[in-house]
């Protein structure tokens, strides 16, 4: 049990190292524009470029440059933007991370609960009107872009009908840290989480239904029936339980990606300064330190999420436990 966990932690470190080298090389070693002037930004003065060169050790060999960059990113954490003078990059990303994490974790909670509910119900009532209704609803959910749904929700709850009793609880757009007001924190997140979750509810519901229906054809289901186990217990304890394995894989990928900034459109629509928004702004300004930091921290989240999911995997699939 312990060995596979350690092995995955090792994998994680190796993956992070590989990603950081790759990202570094993309920005510092690709022929073309010189990194110093790219970091300094458009229309930078020669003095700025010289300052950048000194600060990032750009006249030294590549491995040294890599180490300096990593030190600025992870140890001293004093990477600053030159495009946006004095902007401390790491604190900005660190402030954005809890926002994105809250958004994505909230959405994940919603989509797991409803995805499970829909998947199990549809499978239990396979080929009846309940199944068909749930599957059509899922399809509608999948086909609604999250940012569009967010915009529609805002239209209703922020401006036109805000005073209507149904929506009057909705706080203004933006994020309230949990430590300042847990209640406002939760309230501001409800609608963003919901609009991000809708598409995933549809996907997870459909995937789970398909997996359960397939699992119900397995030999071990017939064995369970032959044992005299009840249908509902067979559905939940056998078919759903084995179906969860592939859902967890899917979840790890989706969750990691979203935490890494893929929820950017939802963040923008709901005026949340999350990781996606920061990355987006960095790209707009061609602000290399911001992009670099955002990409690496995102990668770190993705790798951590994947490692966590792998461990969850070990927990729910005994077949994963035996190998070294």
């Amino acid at each position: 049990m312990l060995l596979p966990v350690l092995k995955r932690l090792g994998d994680m470190v190796v993956a992070m190292f590989g990603i950081s080298v790759l990202v570094f090389l993309i920005f510092f070693a690709i022929p073309g524009a010189e990194p110093a002037s790219r970091i300094a930004g458009r229309n930078a003065s020669p003095e700025t470029v010289a300052a950048v060169r000194l600060s990032f050790g750009l006249d030294q060999p590549l491995p040294v440059q890599y180490l300096i960059m990593m030190k600025k990113l992870f140890i001293t954490q004093d990477l600053t933007s030159f495009v946006n003078r004095g902007y401390k990059v790491i604190p900005a990303v660190m402030n954005a991370a809890p926002i994105t994490l809250s958004l994505v974790a909230g959405a994940a909670l919603i989509w797991i609960v409803f995805g499970l509910l829909i998947g199990v119900l549809a499978a239990a009532f396979k080929n009846t009107w309940i199944d068909r209704l749930l599957m059509v609803m899922s399809l509608i959910g999948i086909s609604m872009p999250a940012f569009w749904l967010g915009a529609v929700i805002n239209l209703f709850t922020q401006s036109r009908w805000h005073d209507y009793w149904l929506f009057s609880w909705v706080p203004p757009l933006g994020y309230k840290p949990f430590v300042e007001s847990p209640k406002l924190w939760a309230l501001t997140l409800v609608l963003p989480c919901f609009s991000l979750a809708v598409g995933y509810i549809g996907i997870y519901g459909r995937v789970l239904r398909a997996n359960i229906v397939e699992a119900m054809q397995e030999d071990y289901i017939r064995t369970a029936r032959a044992k005299g186990v009840s249908e509902s217990r067979i559905l939940i304890r056998h078919a759903l339980r084995t179906s969860l394995i592939s859902v967890v894989t899917l979840f790890g990928l989706d969750f990691g990606q979203l935490v890494g900034g893929v929820a950017v459109l939802t963040e923008i629509v709901f005026a949340l300064q999350g990781v996606g928004k920061i990355t987006f702004d960095g790209l707009l300004n061609l602000d290399l330190p911001v992009i670099m930091a955002a990409v690496l921290y995102s990668a770190l989240f993705v790798v951590i999420c994947n490692a966590l999911v792998d461990m969850l995997y070990i927990l729910i699939d005994p077949r994963e436990r035996t190998d070294g």
């Binding site: 030999d219 064995t223 339980r241 084995t242 394995i245």
Partner: peptide, 9 residues
């Protein structure tokens, strides 16, 4: 088939 007739988990 005893390989498939038991629930793997």
């Amino acid at each position: 088939d005893p390989m498939t007739s038991l629930t793997p988990v």
